[in-house]
């Protein structure tokens, strides 16, 4: 696909890009995901729903259910950490993009990528601490989760959320999720959410818009 790029357009974009100093967009209301690490059965229906929705070949996986296990037989434990793009408040990928293909939406803070501008340089892939932007070997461009913006705009929720058999994954205004004022089945009646669990990068790097119901072994003091 890269061969079909309009080079003049890209050139112009690079020029435009260089004149801008990066200040993160502050959206009207930042949206983000919430995942219950404990109640998740790890079925990966969300991953497959996402692959189907986005027409991805084997390789890139926008949503990744990570399996964590520990302890020694027979005192063992296991939980899941489920992440796609965290649509960070200060996305590390965005300033690395030489063409400005990556942008943050002003209304809901979704970090999106304009595939017609992507030249496949993969800088964003290297910069993301969570592995969200991924290279699609078929299109030779980087692709990433856009929170199913088309579904959000139609008044629905992303495919991964609507796929969740256990109702442990949800999306919404991240501040409300963190305060506990957002109605969602992902958070049980006795659950509290946290910004960060073990097995993920420090949230202070990019201020990711995600919350977790953590496993007791995953809580970081």
């Amino acid at each position: 696909m890269a061969a079909e790029l309009d080079k003049a357009k890209v050139k112009e974009a690079v020029k435009a890009r260089k004149r801008v100093t990066y200040t993160p967009v502050v959206p009207d209301e930042q949206w983000g995901f919430v995942h219950n690490n404990v109640d998740c059965i790890g079925c990966r229906a969300c991953e497959i729903a996402c692959k189907d929705k986005n027409g991805l070949p084997p390789g890139p996986r926008f949503r990744r259910v990570q399996y964590v296990e520990g302890g020694s037989f027979p005192e063992v434990f296991a939980y899941k950490v489920n992440m796609s793009c965290n649509h960070c408040a200060e996305p590390a990928c965005l300033p690395t993009c030489p063409t400005g293909a990556i942008f943050k939406r002003a209304d809901n803070g979704v970090v999106d990528i304009d595939s017609t501008l992507c030249i496949g340089c993969r800088r964003c892939e290297a910069s993301c601490p969570f592995g969200a932007p991924q290279y699609n070997p078929e299109t030779k461009t980087v692709v990433k989760c856009n929170m199913c913006i088309d579904e959000l705009e139609a008044g629905r929720k992303p495919y991964c959320v609507m796929a969740c058999m256990m109702r442990v994954l949800d999306v919404g205004p991240i501040e409300k999720i963190r305060e506990g004022s957002y109605e969602t089945k992902a958070i049980g009646p006795n659950d509290k959410v946290v910004r960060r669990v073990r097995n993920m990068a420090d949230w202070q790097l990019t201020n990711p818009s995600i919350a977790f119901v953590p496993h007791s072994k995953a809580i970081i003091e």
């Binding site: 357009k9 942008f103 304009d114 017609t116 501008l117």
Partner: peptide, 21 residues
């Protein structure tokens, strides 16, 4: 149709793209 990069923030990133509806 894709109007051009200067309006990119308005466009859906994957345009043209068949939405469910």
């Amino acid at each position: 149709p894709m109007p051009g990069f200067e309006e990119k923030a308005e466009a859906f990133a994957y345009e043209p793209y068949p939405r469910d509806d």
